[in-house]
């Protein structure tokens, strides 16, 4: 019986040591996920700042399709007026709204670029080419930032749910909730459809 008792004690000690090595993991991974999220916001912000320039440049092109331009301006305004709640990352509703608004701007912008293909004079200007390069670059950075966030959240959420993280969560970090995961960019899956004036006007 004594050996069994010692054995159990030994096991407990081993588990404790194992557990202690992970005591900082939850806050560490949380910080990484927050940093990755900050980068996502940063890149979206960068895109939002490009839009006014882009709109101004495109407006200069003779009779550029109004509805396309309008859609971009509206989507941009919506993104700009969006209030981000403090618990955005753990709040599924808020995250969905954020995604919907940013996604709307993504598709409005990609549609704008598709329509711009029809305006050779506009495409030839250096200003437009520069903006196009910046926009493409920013969309790529957004994709990268989103992927980094997805990876960081996966690590964090896994830590919350697996041993020994789950023990530390119940002991010290009971208020931590899993963060919301992002979907793979929906805008990349749908090809914008373009209707060139067949509907009249």
């Amino acid at each position: 019986m004594r050996f069994v008792g010692l054995g159990i004690l030994g096991l407990v000690v081993v588990l404790l040591i194992w557990g202690f090595t992970g005591i900082n993991k939850i806050p560490t991974h949380e910080e990484s996920a927050h940093a990755a999220w900050a980068q996502v916001l940063n890149q979206y912000q960068r895109r939002a700042e490009l839009v006014p320039n882009l709109v101004a440049t495109v407006k200069g092109a003779a009779d550029f399709e109004k509805s396309t331009l309008e859609a971009v301006v509206q989507a941009r305004a919506k993104v700009g007026s969006m209030q981000l709640p403090a618990d955005l990352l753990t709040n599924p509703e808020a995250m969905r709204a954020f995604e919907a608004n940013q996604g709307a701007l993504t598709s409005a912008l990609s549609r704008l670029m598709v329509v711009a293909e029809q305006y050779p004079n506009l495409k030839a200007t250096e200003g437009f080419q520069t903006l196009q390069a910046q926009l493409e670059g920013t969309e790529n950075r957004i994709a990268v930032a989103r992927k980094d966030y997805i990876d960081a959240v996966r690590v964090y959420n896994t830590e919350l749910k697996t041993f020994p993280g789950v023990v530390w969560k119940s002991l010290l970090y009971a208020d931590r909730e899993p963060m919301q995961q992002l979907q793979v960019d929906p805008a990349k899956q749908e090809v914008p459809t373009v209707d060139f004036g067949t509907s009249g006007n």
Binding site: Q129, T130, Q132, A133, Q134, E136, G137, T138
Partner: peptide, 11 residues
Amino acid sequence: ITDAVASHIIQ
């Protein structure tokens, strides 16, 4: 090397 510069160099 901003995105625009990189793009110009490629073009």
